[in-house]
């Protein structure tokens, strides 16, 4: 468990990077994994995780003792990610569910239906790449909720603290995110359920 009191101590105040590194080692891999699943790119994931830790290091005096350091750290990372998305717009930010406004009115978006051609899909990339691509296609709020719950095992309550939203919102985002993933990954999903049923 992180010794936050030690982190706030004199050693940390004197910029003891080794002490900081030792104390946040528990979270570095987890943070990198989340960053990788959010960005889908190892270099950007590394940058995001490093930047989040750097900000945590510099802002540690704002951390409230007795609260969850992990939640605080992941909140920094998720805010940072959203800021970067807004600033650079590298990734998709719009909701797949929302209709697109055009000159002639609103147009509903359609996702490709892969249910009918599993052979063709099987010839494409590896399963992991497909899943990552499907994750990348999610609206950012859904993606963050799904990644934090399904990949990193945070509770709904913890996610509501990290993403600064209600538990009901977390519930809704995870559910919508999974439904979109199911649509994207239909060949694998239905293959799995058939195997499970058989």
């Amino acid at each position: 468990m992180l010794n936050t009191r030690a982190l706030a101590g004199a050693q940390y105040r004197e910029s003891n990077i080794e002490a900081f590194e030792e104390l946040v080692r528990t979270y570095d891999l987890k943070l990198y994994r989340v960053a990788l699943r959010l960005t889908g790119n190892p270099d950007e994931a590394k940058d995001l995780a490093q930047e989040a830790l750097f900000r945590a290091y510099r802002a540690f005096d704002k951390f409230k003792m007795g609260t969850s350091f992990e939640k605080w750290l992941f909140r920094i990372a998720s805010n940072l990610y959203i800021d970067k998305l807004r600033k650079y717009g590298k990734y998709r930010f719009e909701s797949l569910d929302e209709p697109i406004a055009t000159k002639d009115g609103y147009v509903e978006k359609t996702l490709p239906d892969w249910t009918g051609n599993p052979e063709e899909i099987a010839e494409q990339n590896e399963l992991a790449e497909k899943i990552q691509a499907a994750l990348q296609s999610l609206p950012v709020n859904y993606r963050m909720a799904v990644v934090l719950y399904d990949l990193e095992g945070f509770s709904y309550e913890e996610i509501s603290g990290i993403l600064d939203c209600s538990i009901g919102t977390v519930r809704s985002r995870i559910h919508r995110g999974r439904r979109l993933l199911r649509k994207k990954l239909a060949p694998y999903v239905y293959q799995e359920t058939e195997v499970g049923v058989g």
Partner: peptide, 8 residues
């Protein structure tokens, strides 16, 4: 099944 797939 979708949830389990993410574990892959």
């Amino acid at each position: 099944a979708t949830k389990d797939l993410l574990g892959a």
